[in-house]
C-alpha cells in the first residue's frame, strides 16, 4: 500500500536579475513528476545537482507547495534528515534540547521526556553524556547521529533523507547507512532517500527513480536499474562512476 503518492507535480521558480528584479525566465524545477512510495520501503531519488530532487522532497514534506499537482500522504508523522549536520543543528542548543524540541511541540507527548530521549540516544549509539554537549563538540558522523535521533524521537512513519551521508568519509558513510537500515527495520519507517551517489542509492534502496531536469526518466526496482538500465541518462550515470571492485 502506498503511504506517499504524488501526481503531476509542477514547480517552477522564477529567476530574477538586477536590483529591479525583472523576471528573466523560469527554472522548471519539477516538470510533471508522479510517484508512489510503498509502506516500509526505501525509495531512492537519484540525479545530479539541480535536477529537482530536494524540491520534490520538500514538497512531499509540505515545506513548500507545488504550482500544480497533488500530494497524498497517509500519515502525519513525517520527518527529515538533511545533508549537512553542521548547519541543520542549532549551534546554541544542547543536544538534549535539539532532540526534545520536536517532542515538546507535539501535543500530549511531554510525559517521560528524558526517558524517551535517553532511549533514542541509545538507538543511535551515542553515549548518555552527549545530552549536555553542544553540536560543535561532535564529529560529522556523530552530528548526523544526533540529526537522526532528532528525527526518530517523534516516532515518524515517513522520513525524507536528503543526502544524509554526502558530507561524510566513506567508512563513516557505511556506519550511518547501516544505522538507518537498522532503525527502519526496528520502527517500520518508510524512507524517501535522496542522493546524487548511485553507490549509496544501491546500498539503501528497494526502488529507484532517476531524475533529470525536473523529470523522472526511469523508475524501477533497484536491482533492475543497476543490472539493466534502460534510459540513456541512467546508463551514462552508471558508466561515470569510477570503480575498483
Amino acid at each position: 500500500m502506498a503511504i506517499v503518492e504524488c501526481r503531476d507535480i509542477i514547480k517552477y521558480f522564477s529567476v530574477q536579475r538586477g536590483y529591479l528584479k525583472k523576471g528573466a525566465g523560469v527554472v522548471k524545477a519539477l516538470d510533471g513528476v508522479s510517484l508512489e512510495i510503498e509502506e516500509g520501503e526505501t525509495f531512492g531519488l537519484v540525479g545530479e545537482s539541480g535536477c529537482g530532487k530536494t524540491t520534490l522532497g520538500k514538497i512531499l514534506l509540505g515545506i513548500i507547495s507545488p504550482d500544480s499537482g497533488e500530494v497524498l500522504l497517509k500519515t502525519k508523522e513525517k520527518q527529515a534528515i538533511f545533508q549537512d549536520p553542521y548547519s541543520s543543528l542549532d549551534p546554541k542548543m544542547k543536544v538534549r534540547d535539539i532532540i526534545s524540541e520536536g517532542l515538546i511541540l507535539k501535543k500530549g507527548s511531554k510525559t517521560r521526556l528524558l526517558e524517551r530521549i535517553e532511549k533514542v540516544l541509545d538507538v543511535v549509539r551515542l553515549p548518555k553524556g552527549s545530552l549536555n554537549k553542544y553540536p560543535h563538540q561532535f564529529s560529522g558522523g556523530e552530528r548526523q547521529r544526533i540529526a537522526i535521533a532528532r528525527a526518530v524521537v517523534t516516532e515518524p512513519e515517513f522520513i525524507v533523507c536528503d543526502e544524509p551521508v554526502s558530507n561524510l568519509d566513506v567508512t563513516i558513510q557505511l556506519q550511518i547507512l547501516k544505522l538507518l537500515k537498522e532503525i527502519q527495520e526496528k520502527f517500520r519507517i518508510t524512507y524517501l532517500f535522496i542522493s546524487h551517489d548511485l553507490r549509496v542509492i544501491k546500498f539503501m534502496c528497494d526502488r529507484v527513480a532517476v531524475m533529470k531536469d525536473g523529470k523522472i526518466v526511469e523508475n524501477r526496482g533497484s536491482k533492475e536499474i543497476f543490472t539493466g538500465p534502460v534510459h540513456p541518462y541512467t546508463k551514462l550515470l552508471l558508466s561515470s562512476i569510477p570503480r575498483i571492485f
Binding site: 566513506v170 567508512t171 557505511l174 548511485l198 553507490r199 549509496v200 570503480r243 575498483i244 571492485f245
Partner: peptide, 13 residues
C-alpha cells in the same frame, strides 16, 4: 583494509 571494505560495501557491482 577497513577503508577498502567500506568502498567495497558501497560498490555498485
Amino acid at each position: 583494509v577497513n577503508l577498502l571494505e567500506s568502498v567495497k560495501a558501497l560498490s555498485w557491482r
